Amino acid sequence: MNRNQYKPNPPIDSISEPIHRYWKMRKDDKAILRALKDHHIDSSKYGLGLTKFREIRESLGLFRTRKQEHSLDTIKPAMIRLRTQYPKAGARDLVGLLFHEEKMGVSRALVVKYFALYEPELVRERRKNRLRRKHLWAAGVNDIWAVDQHDKWKYKFGLALHSYTDPFVGVMHWMKIWWTNSSPRLILSYHLERVEEIGGKQCVHFVDPGTENYRLANGHTLLRHLHDPSLEGTLQHRWMVKKKNVMPEIGWSQLRHRFTPGFEDILDVGVNNGWYNPDILLEALVFHYIFIPWLQQELDAYRDRINNTAKRADRNKLLPHGVPNDIYKHPSDYGVLDFKVIC
């Protein structure tokens, strides 16, 4: 018998990064192994079986929920920390927060049991809301990017938010916080940074009418004309009026429910103690110097968690189901087209 009939395993250093990336998407072992073989392992040189993959995964410190064997006592300190910043998060959100923020694999049943024991009054507060369904049409990945701003903190704390979303897959390209979101140059810089980061751009913009978006719309149209002269004389953006910019509005609604309540309580402490007074320039500058970098870090973690969490199953949804980041990076695996314009 030829003892060398099996191909050697790939070097761990060459696959550890994608393993961590797919682990963050909460894929099971078979799905991770399949993605590694499709995109990261040279099958002509290396082979990798499921048993060996599990050994490699555990050697990287990545253990499944059952093996972590968490109980109410072991998750309680982490739950207390998370409830300070996310007091309104439900069971599904808490499972994701424990996984992404605390590196803990915890079952939904255990979180529900924790709620019933320690937070019964919050469970009773939850009510069903009537949803009004709207339609948004997109041809594929990078067909449309929708941009919007959020001013709920602008007049209370002097903080302005801005986001960019691919509505086809639900990927949030950025979630920015600054003392303004009304500067045309600033908004355009966000877009150009993202284009440089991914090496391309979308086909069409969805933007709300406003002077802060004019430079963004014109800059995007100019770049599209430079890369495709046949588009000369056409608009490559669409003004969305009367709350028709659906996906960003959904994103802001989820942010207000999932992220905002706990952080507003923290910011209120600063306002009530006189750390922030918009009429005193020095106090406002110090407040922004302290809180903007910290909040940007928290928003980046929130965006990363949203992009690496599969959306709730929806039988009315015609778009592909899966983890947004995975669909965005490997659209062909889901049978969809990528319209990215290479820059």
Rank of each mutant, 00 (worst) to 15 (best):
N2T: 11
Q5T: 10
Q5A: 11
P10E: 07
I19Q: 01
H20C: 06
Y22P: 05
Y22Q: 02
K24P: 00
D28S: 02
D28R: 10
K30E: 08
L33M: 00
R34D: 08
H39L: 07
D42R: 03
S44R: 12
Y46S: 03
L48E: 01
R54S: 08
D73S: 14
K76W: 04
P77N: 04
L82G: 03
Y86G: 03
K113N: 05
F115C: 02
A116C: 03
V123A: 10
K128S: 08
R130A: 06
R132P: 02
R133A: 09
W137G: 04
A139G: 06
A139N: 08
V147H: 09
A160W: 13
F168E: 09
M172E: 13
H173P: 07
W174L: 15
W174R: 14
W179M: 12
N181S: 14
S182I: 11
E193V: 01
V195S: 00
I198W: 00
K201H: 06
C203F: 01
N218F: 08
L222P: 00
L222Q: 09
L223K: 02
R224K: 07
Q236R: 10
H237T: 13
R238H: 12
W239R: 10
N245I: 11
V246P: 08
E249V: 12
H257C: 11
P261T: 05
D265W: 05
D265K: 09
N273V: 00
N273L: 07
G274T: 07
G274C: 04
W275Y: 14
W275V: 04
V286H: 13
W294S: 10
W294T: 12
R305V: 00
R312W: 12
A313Y: 15
L319W: 15
V323N: 13
Y328R: 13
S332G: 06
D333T: 10
G335C: 13
F339Q: 09
F339E: 05
C343A: 09
